[in-house]
C-alpha cells in the first residue's frame, strides 16, 4: 500500500467518485420510489389486506401519507430513510430496518466467502493459463471457463447440492447452522464474527461447513471470468518488448510472471472482480433460495413474492448501496496499484 500517495489529485478523484456515487444513489431512490408508487397496485390496499373494507383503506392511505402529492411523499420517505427508518414490512410485521440488520450480514458473509473463492481461484487459474498460453493448462482453463460462465449460478447450486449434499453427503444441503448447534449470541448478526467474538468455534466451523457449497455455486462463474480476463492480459503482455528482453536476460520465471506479467494484467481483472460482486449480489437471490440460506436475498425474494413494497424498496436500495461501496473499494485498490490512473486523475 506504500504506493498509495495521498496527493491532492487522489483526494479530488476520490471526492469525485464519492459524489457520483451519492448522485447515483439519489437517482436510484427516486427510481424505486416511482416504481413502487406509479406502477399498478395500490399500496394502501396491500397494506390493509385484500379483504379490507373501503373505509379502512382510506384510513390506511391517510396514515401512510399516500393522499399527499408525489414529491411530498418522496421527500417524507427520503427523510425517513435518512433517519434509518425504512418503513414497516407487511409480511414480517416488523420494521424493515430491523429485518435488514438481521438478514444482510448473513448474505454479506456468504458473498465474502464466495469472493474469496473466486478471487483466489481466479488468480491461480489465470496465472496458470496466462503463463503457459496455448498449452495444456490454458486449454483446460479455457474449456472450464466456457462451461462455468455459461452455467447460471442457480444451476450450479442445484447440481452441487445434488452431487455433494444428497448423493455423496459430504456437506449439509441447506441452512446456515446445524440444528444441534446453539447459535452464538447476536452481536453483529454475522455468525462468523459473532462466533469469533464469543469464542464459539464449534459454531464457526459448522457455519463454514454450511457456507462452502453455496459459496462455491456463487463463485464459479466469476472465478472463471476473473481467470479469463487475467489470462488475456497476461498473454497480451507476453508479446511486449520488455518481456522479450526479460527472456533474453534470463530473468527467473517467477519474477517474470509475477512482476512483469501478473501485476499489470491484474488491473482489468480487479475491475472485473468489482463487477462480479454485483453478479454475486444478484445470484445470491437464487442460490440462497436453493440452499435455504437465512439471508437478505431470500428475505428479498419472500418480500417480492408477497408484494411487500417497503421491503422491496429497501432491498433494492441496500443492494445498490452495497454495490456502490464495493465498487468504491475496487476503485481504491486500482488507484493504489496503477500509477497511470493516479496521473490520469490529475488531468481529469
Amino acid at each position: 500500500m506504500k504506493s498509495l500517495i495521498i496527493s491532492n489529485e487522489t483526494i479530488k478523484f476520490l471526492l469525485k467518485r464519492g459524489g457520483s456515487i451519492i448522485f447515483t444513489l439519489i437517482g436510484l431512490s427516486i427510481l424505486i420510489f416511482i416504481l413502487a408508487r406509479i406502477l399498478p397496485g395500490d399500496p394502501a390496499r396491500m397494506a390493509a389486506g385484500w379483504t379490507a373494507p373501503d373505509w379502512v383503506i382510506e384510513e390506511m392511505r391517510r396514515k401512510l401519507g399516500l393522499d399527499q402529492p408525489l414529491h411530498i411523499q418522496y421527500i417524507r420517505w427520503l427523510s425517513d430513510v435518512l433517519k434509518g427508518d425504512l418503513g414497516f414490512s407487511i409480511y414480517t410485521k416488523r420494521s424493515v430496518t430491523v429485518d435488514v440488520l438481521q438478514y444482510l450480514p448473513k448474505t454479506l458473509e456468504l458473498i465474502f466467502v464466495a469472493e474469496l473463492f473466486s478471487i483466489t481461484g481466479g488468480i491461480l487459474l489465470g496465472i496458470l493459463a496466462g503463463a503457459f498460453p496455448y498449452r495444456l493448462p490454458d486449454n483446460v482453463v479455457r474449456v472450464m471457463s466456457y462451461i462455468a460462465i455459461s452455467m447460471p449460478a442457480f444451476v450450479w447450486a442445484i447440481i452441487l447440492q445434488l452431487m455433494f449434499a444428497r448423493i455423496i453427503p459430504l456437506f449439509p444441503a441447506g441452512g446456515q447452522l446445524s440444528s444441534h448447534i446453539v447459535p452464538p449470541p447476536r452481536i453483529t448478526g454475522s455468525i462468523f464474527i459473532d462466533s469469533i467474538i464469543s469464542g464459539r468455534f464449534d459454531a464457526l466451523i459448522d457455519c463454514l461447513w454450511h457456507t462452502i457449497l453455496p459459496a462455491l455455486s456463487l463463485s464459479f462463474g466469476s472465478m472463471m471470468q476473473n481467470a479469463r480476463i487475467l489470462r488475456m492480459g497476461m498473454t497480451d503482455i507476453k508479446g511486449k518488448d520488455y518481456m522479450v528482453l526479460s527472456d533474453a536476460l534470463g530473468l527467473p520465471l517467477r519474477l517474470k510472471i509475477y512482476k512483469y506479467q501478473f501485476r499489470p494484467a491484474s488491473i482489468p481483472a480487479i475491475t472485473a472482480m468489482g463487477m462480479s460482486i454485483g453478479a454475486d449480489l444478484g445470484n445470491a437471490f437464487l442460490v440462497e433460495n436453493v440452499y435455504n440460506w437465512p439471508g437478505f436475498s431470500r428475505y428479498g425474494v419472500t418480500a417480492m413474492l408477497n408484494k411487500d413494497l417497503n421491503a422491496i424498496v429497501a432491498v433494492v436500495l441496500v443492494v445498490g448501496i452495497v454495490y456502490a461501496i464495493a465498487n468504491f473499494i475496487v476503485d481504491l485498490i486500482i488507484l493504489s496499484l496503477d500509477p497511470r490512473i493516479r496521473r490520469m486523475s490529475r488531468s481529469v
Binding site: 444513489l25 436510484l28 454485483g278 449480489l281 433494492v316 443492494v319 445498490g320
Partner: peptide
C-alpha cells in the same frame, strides 16, 4: 441509476 443495481436484482 438503472445500472447501480445488478440487473438481476
Amino acid at each position: 441509476t438503472f445500472v447501480a443495481v445488478p440487473p438481476l436484482v
